[in-house]
């Protein structure tokens, strides 16, 4: 073919004519990949049932997405990876021992009600995976707070039920918790590696940090939300968390336990349900950290990460609306919206 043959067949489109390689699906699948260490740690500590629960969640998520799109006659969005990611995150937020119908119903709730009924990817107000967990916790409170010892790798042989570190802290206090782990340093070590009761993907801080490092390196997330979230929580834990007065709390214990790390790096950073502007993200993170610690220290639940993020999800749009960028050439920081 030569130039003259091409003449009548040129492709016309609007500029720019070059685009970056980045895509929504690449981002979603990379986040899924970055959660693999957490999933592996879950299987390592809680046995093959952890993998089974997670797989059920993922399959339900994909199936629900497919079903809904078919129902409303829209193109399938399975390939964008967002449903898979939601399923994976739901799985990581469940106890490995949970009855199978619970993750199935909860994941369906996450995809159909939390995500698709609000308009699908990009329009959901709440983080779908956290809504699944909130839904399950309220609907089946017993099942969702029945934990097993991480050593019980072979379920059914010697599965002891126990409480999470935060549960012990809430019910019996720090001394009991110390007694369980022996001393402070061994407690930190066990918590860091994930050798404790808890949701199957939240326990190993090491595994979660490996995933977080991938996301930070790829710049899929920035430090703004996680650091402000964790920093605020640590500060409040130190100031108000002690039994013997102000400034005697144990921030490390609070950072390493519960869903703090999973939430700060993987849930609060969800693009759709968090603010877009960096300044707003810092406020969002600070509020998440503050609400988490209020619930942990004064609330009825031992853990507050989930509710903190869901509450702040409501505020994300209004935060974005009130934090403005400095427009080039504008005289002052751009507060004169609507002029």
């Amino acid at each position: 073919m030569d130039a003259t043959l091409k003449k009548d067949n040129l492709l016309v489109s609007v500029s720019p004519h070059v685009k970056s390689e980045e895509s929504v699906s690449r981002i979603m699948w990379t986040v899924c990949l970055s959660l693999m260490p957490a999933l592996i740690s879950g299987v390592y500590y809680f046995g093959p049932r952890a993998a089974l629960v997670t797989a059920l969640c993922i399959l339900t998520a994909l199936f629900s997405e497919l079903l809904f799109k078919r129902f409303v006659n829209a193109d399938s969005t399975i390939n964008d990876g967002s449903a898979f990611l939601t399923g994976l995150l739901v799985g990581l937020n469940f106890p490995a021992t949970v009855a199978f119908y619970i993750p199935i119903v909860s994941t369906f709730f996450a995809i159909v009600i939390t995500k698709q009924l609000f308009g699908g990817l990009g329009y959901n107000v709440f983080n779908p995976a956290l809504m699944a967990r909130a839904f399950a916790l309220i609907t089946w409170p017993r099942a969702m707070t029945t934990w097993i010892e991480p050593t019980a790798k072979f379920i059914g042989v010697d599965a002891h039920t126990t409480a999470t570190p935060l549960g012990i802290l809430k019910e019996d206090g720090l001394d009991k918790l110390m007694a369980v782990f022996g001393n402070a340093s061994s407690m930190y070590t066990e918590l860091f590696f994930g050798h404790r009761a808890g949701s199957l993907g939240e326990t190993s801080i090491l595994a979660l940090l490996i995933g977080a490092a991938i996301l930070l390196y790829k710049r899929y997330i920035t430090w703004h939300i996680p650091l402000s979230f964790l920093g605020t929580a640590a500060l409040l834990a130190w100031v108000f968390g002690g039994k013997t007065g102000l400034f005697t709390g144990d921030p490390i214990l609070h950072l390493l336990s519960g869903g703090m790390v999973l939430g700060a790096f993987f849930m609060a950073t969800d693009y759709v349900t968090a603010p877009s502007l960096k300044a707003g993200q810092i406020l969002f993170g600070v509020c998440c950290g503050a609400i988490t610690m209020m619930i942990r220290l004064k609330g009825g639940f031992p853990e507050g990460v989930m509710f903190a993020i869901l509450i702040m999800n409501c505020f994300a749009p209004i935060i974005d609306r009130n934090f403005k960028t400095k427009v080039f050439g504008a005289k002052k920081a751009n507060k004169d919206k609507g002029k």
Partner: peptide, 17 residues
């Protein structure tokens, strides 16, 4: 697709929009 509000465009805009 729909905007996923990742904020990449905000970080790219030379005009601060």
């Amino acid at each position: 697709g729909p905007c996923i509000r990742c904020g990449r465009c905000i970080e790219a805009c030379p005009m601060g929009l």
